[in-house]
Design a binder for these strands. Structure first.
Length: 1102
RNA sequence: GCCCAGAUGGUGGAAUCGGUAGACACGCAGGACUUAAAAUCCUGUGGCUUCACGGCUGUGCGGGUUCAAGUCCCGCUCUGGGUACCA
């Protein structure tokens, strides 16, 4: 009979009792249970407080998940479960960001529709995610590629298309309102974030054709078409955003990227630069991510400053339109160049000419009476462009503008825009006098006499010796932007970007050939070359000089490609003593380097620091830099030389790609003008079938291949949205994922609000996170969401790196040597599959089987009977054979072990290499925890109803405290160790009491939910442990009445003594001194001082 | 160059307020149980030194503050990440 008993105990019992920890079965059962019972379904109408935990949703790649992917998901899952235990209604969803290049590249190669590839990949991702036991509410899954989803991405695009940014109210407003304003007063005085635009009044607006009107509106829309320099990647056939380009090659694939001028959809993110910057201060994000965004936005405060040229501009060549009707009228048009905002000069000029031809009756009367110096010998010009406005009549001598207003100016709303206009003109130093049509018509003499009075008064007061400012100079100027106006007296030359518009006109005859050659050369240099070659200093002297605004000294004007045309004004005032780039330039070309701030050694390098006293600087002498900056700006503004100004580096975002696998842009073209598709028709604008996923023969995007790609008989836009479109708002869709009426209902977004915790990789620091913030602010402006920032708290999980394993093959032999012996041979390292290796020891039999051709018949030179390989840390990638699939870990150790081990590896935020060294320890811990609930020899489930002892309660409450605090601080690694300590201590006490073990299970369940559910059920609970409340911490159990004090001498701990904690500190001191050991360490000396810190330490100072 | 983060045993890491450095785990060494293996359990484990008790030393480097420094201050070195002719 003994034989039979042995048979059962060895072969049958382990399989049929609940004795040991069968994680595979347990985990599958509970995953099924959660799915069937919808345990983690979040309710939209709940009385509970909400908590929204979001992971950055993945792009489902063909390679599937590796062990690095779930790291953040595990952390967010722990927080979600913790919050549910604490009575929160938790929204913890998951979805897929599935538009993207890999599926599309695969489609081009194989002809398989990317939707099919995507579907397969998603299926695999879902299986892998399910294996890990996440508490996602899968009923809310979203996919950016699903037409039910992307119709709302398209809808948001339409909202952007139908909005403009009003700088006065500092928010986006409907374009329909703007059109109403145009219809009543035109665009004068409107402060918009917009492209260059002409000025017009209501009558002119109404006179425009629809096409002209739409063209103008496009300049205002937040989603707009424009000719822009884009990063074109010919290999990928698409345009890339700045943050998708690294060192001149594409981030994905590493293909060469070139600069190219293209008509592109763009989003006016630059309008939000300041709000995106300010908002950062309100966020609980890491400093490094906030800094990255600040750098990207690149705000710099400084001042614009005009340098007059010493000689007039060379006549422009090849500009026939200058010989026009206006010159015949004898007006000196060159002046316009000085006073007009040169960016919009050409457009304004048309208006001015138009105005002259069609003067109103009253304007004409005034002109006839003031022309040819009829009044007080003052010369007036008519319809002159100043800044962005057209003045009716102007005298530069007196800096006086006369405006004849029609009825329209008396309208209430127009008064405001007139005020702005007046303000800007006043800034330029002009006074404005207004007469109405009625006044002129009714009482011409009265008007003229008032005019005479004003002129006389102005003449007597405007006897300023220095006649500076716009309008007075016949010679043109160069405007620079500087953040260091304090160093104005250190300027020794100006540098213009080679592309600067004045280069051709200022260059003297002798310098022309060299300058032209230089300009051509830098034009042909690719972006890549320019970046690769930042150390070579190059430039050319133009032969022209500018005048120093304060000293009047001539300043040579150079061109150099270290100055970028696209930033600031494309021109810099070079202060070589205090700017390293100017310094290098000056050294190279032997230009003077005058020092104006004390400090550094100018012989060796520039002194760029913003501290020190000003020297050699006239009115700034002796001031600290910070004071001098303020003073300099004051002076520059007072003298009309420039204004304080803020620049941002943030560029508008390109929003189109010449690709198939993206959201179609819901725009159709009528007479080449873009129009929005009606919102209710968006369900028609779904990705059409195409024969190939390649551009057409004529180079049009793949959508052009689709039959009937049209709307209302007009052609539809053929470019698609970029990868970041769908991810910029997905967090809102999770709140109300199946809504067919709206992108999200007001009730849902009002309840869930913004995300309490967002977890994802830091690689999205500027791309996704900035775009999503931009869209959120826009949606707030148009009243669709109640908050301004989408992600309150952001945690970046560190990357899990792979360890690749290298074996050493002896050169020219089929022989491999162990790591320690490789120095004896000439060897080549070869990557082998990391799964063949345990603790750097290669399983040779597995290796032979892995690639028989290479390893089966090879000879192996071992050390201590083992083949040791070399380990290297790097990215986890198929290429290095070091990808570890979480499925394998779940199979071998269970999901609970995987979850706890990933948390145990180290701080969530740190990058760390994946290694299975140590996973055994976590697995052993779970087995130990399991055994606490089971009888030792029989292995039956058994817990005791006995009352817990003080020691047991202390262990429990210490753990409650630690686990709670650690989750709040995202310190998951230390809470895992706290659980281990707890189990070790309970095991030592042989504690199996329900009152201790049940609360412990709840603490552990966010980390290891499957095993906890199983044990919870065995404890006799019918419901999921998920429904249990988090145990409350009672500090009373931790109170100690004595403490084992370390006794130290001069800071060195020598021994310990036990004292009651409520003992008087003086008494402790007395007892310590009296102690025999103390006397030994004192060696007869008297202690100088004894420090007793209650419950901490005793230090005796000898 | 600039910005941010970091550097602790053979390894991953802990020390949350300036108060016993190295928790927890891996690995390693030794032991128990076993015919054996697996599993499990026990002991030890920063370095140097000592038969031992113990002593000295020790948190990247050099200084400083303090009764007391991994922790605070000053100056460096190195590593990781971001960013760049942005005036």
């Amino acid at each position: 009979m003994l034989w039979l008993a042995d048979f059962f105990s060895i072969f049958l019992l382990p399989k049929f009792t609940m004795a040991s920890y069968h994680f595979n079965t347990i985990e599958k059962n509970w995953q099924k249970f959660w799915a069937e019972n919808q345990t983690f379904k979040a309710e939209n109408n709940s009385k509970l407080p909400k908590y929204y935990v979001l992971d950055m949703f993945p792009y489902p790649s063909g390679a599937g998940l590796h062990v690095g992917h779930p790291l953040g998901y595990i952390a967010s899952d722990i927080v979600s479960r913790y919050k549910r235990h604490n009575g929160f209604n938790v929204l913890h969803p998951m979805g897929y960001d599935a538009f993207g290049l890999p599926a599309e590249q695969y489609a081009i190669q194989t002809g398989q529709h990317p939707a099919i590839t995507t579907e397969e990949n998603i299926k695999r991702y879902r299986e892998q995610l399910d294996n890990i036991g996440f508490s996602f509410d899968w009923s809310r899954e979203v996919r950016t590629t699903n037409p039910d989803y992307y119709r709302w991405t398209q809808w948001i695009f339409l909202q952007l298309f139908n909005a403009w940014y009003n700088k006065q109210s500092d928010k986006a407003e409907p374009i329909s309102e703007l059109i109403k304003t145009f219809e009543t007063i035109g665009n004068k005085g409107i402060q918009a974030a917009c492209e260059e635009t002409v000025l017009f009044d209501a009558a002119q607006w109404k006179a425009y054709s629809e096409k002209e009107q739409q063209k103008i509106l496009l300049n205002y829309r937040l989603a707009f078409l424009s000719e822009t320099m884009v990063n074109w990647c010919p290999e990928l056939g698409t345009v890339l955003a700045n943050d998708e380009v690294k060192d001149g090659v594409s981030e994905r694939g590493g293909y060469l990227v070139e600069r190219k001028l293209m008509t592109q959809w763009s989003l006016r993110i630059s309008a939000y630069a300041e709000r995106l910057l300010q908002g950062l201060d309100t966020l609980d994000w890491t400093d490094s991510i906030k800094e990255a965004q600040r750098n990207w936005i690149g705000k710099s405060e400084g001042t614009s400053l005009r340098f007059l040229l010493t000689s007039p501009l060379a006549p422009l060549q090849g500009r026939g339109e200058r010989i026009s009707a206006i010159e015949k009228q004898g007006d000196d048009e060159d002046l316009w160049f000085v006073t007009a905002d040169k960016k919009i000069y050409a457009r304004l000029k048309e208006f001015a000419l138009e105005n002259r031809k069609n003067q109103t009756f009253s304007e004409d009367i005034i002109w006839q009476n003031i022309r040819d110096r009829q009044v007080e010998n003052v010369k007036f010009r008519r319809q002159h462009i100043i800044d962005r406005f057209i003045a009716d009549f102007v005298s530069f001598e007196l800096k006086l503008i006369i405006e004849i207003d029609g009825l329209i100016h008396s309208l209430e709303e127009n008064k405001i825009s007139d005020e702005i206009r007046t303000g800007i003109l006043n800034d330029h130093g002009f006074a404005i006098i207004r007469f109405t049509n009625e006044e002129v018509n009714a009482d011409l003499e009265g008007v003229l006499s008032r005019l005479r009075d004003i002129i006389k008064k102005t003449k007597s007061t405007s006897s300023s010796p220095r006649e500076k400012g716009v309008g007075d100079e016949v010679n043109p100027h160069i405007e620079v932007f500087t953040t260091r106006p304090d160093t104005i007296f250190g300027v020794s030359f100006l540098t213009l970007a080679p592309e600067h518009e004045l280069v051709a006109q200022i260059t003297t005859q002798d310098c022309k050939a060299a300058v032209d050659a230089y300009v051509t050369a830098s034009k042909n240099r690719s972006e890549r070359e320019r970046m690769a070659d930042v150390k070579t200093i190059s430039g050319q002297f133009t032969g022209a000089y500018a005048v120093h605004p304060f000293t009047g000294a001539p300043i040579p004007i150079w061109i150099g490609d270290y100055v970028l045309a696209g930033y600031g004004t494309g021109a810099v005032m070079a202060v070589p003593a205090h700017d390293s780039r100017d310094y290098a330039f000056a050294k190279h070309f032997n230009l003077p380097i005058p020092q104006v701030v004390e400090g550094g050694n100018i012989e060796l390098e520039s002194y760029d620091a913003k501290e020190g006293q000003l020297i050699n600087s006239d009115f700034l002498n002796g001031m600290e830099v910070k004071v001098a900056v303020k003073k300099a700006i004051e002076k520059i503004e007072a003298e009309g030389l420039g204004q304080g100004k803020t620049n941002y580096r943030l560029r508008n975002a390109v929003f189109g790609r010449q690709r198939y696998w993206g959201e179609p842009i819901p725009i159709y073209y009528k007479d080449e003008i873009p129009f929005a598709v009606d919102e209710q028709d968006l369900d028609q604008i779904i990705l059409p079938a195409v024969d190939k996923f390649l551009p057409t023969e004529t180079g049009e995007p793949p959508l052009a291949r689709a039959a009937n790609w049209s709307y209302k008989g007009y052609p539809l836009e053929t470019t698609t949205m970029p990868g970041w479109a769908g991810s910029s708002w997905y967090y809102l869709r999770y709140m109300d994922p199946r809504n067919t009426k709206e992108f999200v209902s007001k009730e849902a977004v009002d309840y869930w609000q913004n995300i309490d915790l967002y977890i994802g990789g830091s690689e999205h620091a500027v791309g996704h996170l900035l775009y999503a913030r931009f869209w959120c602010k826009f949606l707030k402006d148009i009243g669709k969401v109640p908050f301004e920032e989408p992600f309150k708290k952001l945690v970046n999980q560190g990357m899990i790196q792979g360890i690749s394993c290298l074996v050493h093959r002896v050169n020219n032999e089929n022989k491999f040597v162990s790591e320690g012996l490789k120095s004896k041979y000439e060897t080549t390292p070869i990557h082998i599959d990391v799964n063949l290796v345990t603790n750097n020891i290669v399983d040779i039999e597995k290796l032979r089987a892995w690639r028989p051709a290479e390893f089966k018949d090879a000879e192996y030179v071992l050390e201590d009977g083992k083949l040791i390989c070399q380990a290297e840390v790097g990215k986890m990638s198929k290429r290095w054979h070091n990808v570890v699939n979480p499925d394998d870990i779940c199979q071998q150790y269970g999901a609970d072990t995987l979850r706890m081990y990933e948390m145990f590896l180290g701080p969530l935020q740190d990058a760390k290499p994946w290694s299975t060294q140590g996973i055994e320890g976590v697995h052993r811990f779970l087995k130990k925890a399991w055994r606490l609930f089971h009888n030792n020899p029989t292995e039956d489930f058994e817990i005791s109803e006995e009352v817990a002892t003080k020691a047991e309660l202390k262990i429990l409450h210490k753990t409650i405290k630690k686990a709670t605090e650690d989750i709040e601080h995202f310190s998951f690694n230390t809470s895992v160790s706290a659980f281990m300590v707890c189990v070790n201590e309970l095991q030592d006490l042989k504690c199996n009491k329900r009152s201790i073990l049940e609360p412990f299970l709840i603490l552990l369940s966010p980390y290891a939910p499957h095993i906890c559910e199983e044990l919870w059920k065995l404890c006799g609970h019918a419901d999921s442990i998920e429904k249990a409340s988090w145990p409350s911490f009672n500090a009373d159990y931790l109170i100690e009445n004595e403490f084992y004090y370390p006794i130290s001498f001069n800071g060195k701990v020598r021994f310990n003594l036990n004292f009651a904690l409520d003992m008087d500190l003086k008494e402790v001191e007395v007892q310590v001194i009296a102690n025999e050991q103390t006397q030994q360490y004192l060696e007869g000396k008297t202690p100088k001082k004894v420090i007793v810190v209650k419950g901490r330490i005793v230090n005796v100072v000898v």
